[in-house]
Amino acid sequence: MDGFSRLALVEGKLFLREKAALIGVFGLPVALVIGFGLIPGFSDPQKGLSDQIGTEYIAALGVAIVLASLGLTGVPMVLGQYRERGVLRRLGVTPVRPVALLLADLTVWAAAAVLSVAVLIAVVRIAFHVPAPVKPGWFILAVALGIASLFATGLLAASVAPTARGAAGIGWLLFFPNMFLAGIYFPTEEMSSTMRQIGNFTPLGSALHAVRDSWMGIDPRPEYLGIMAAWALVAGALAARFFRWDQA
């Protein structure tokens, strides 16, 4: 097995050893979906949710929570630690560059996100007869762009933070407003139009809209996809420019 594959394998194992990460990425979204799904009548289309099936809506929220917790809290926390502990520096004196570890981690986390989304789709389908995303192509694109934009934002947080603690802190500071504006705490349908507009410009807000729409069978508005792509490119480019491999 070559260096990169083994790095990805080891980082995958390390991810599975983090109980908090497993709860956040797999346990919490599934628990949320089951909890709401058991409410009588919630598996019918809901007037207040643009006629989306309640459980389907919660599953879309689950997808957004997975993307946000991995991208905005996981990415900066782990990379900040790897920099501070000298894990990245140590790789700098091997034939494998430190960037290999970063790519291995992004691969593992993206795989975890995709797996968690698949689990959510399966759970709501089997337990509550919610149909799988009606526009699978748009759905996959929405999830892919969501991963790209939120991971890039997390990378940027890791780039500008001086310490591991700082990186994790910036991650959490991004996490809660993003969750709020995206409509995780209460639906965008109940927001004022200004708030909704602001939410649309966040990567998580656009991701949630695009995921909800494609699940219901509506083509997501191009602006949602464009906003996510823009976040991915701009935050990604800034992160590439400012990322420091060494604490000193």
Binding site: V10, V87, R89
Partner: peptide, 12 residues
Amino acid sequence: VQLQETQLQDKI
């Protein structure tokens, strides 16, 4: 190379 003051991942 053995570097001063580097750590590995805690759970490796």
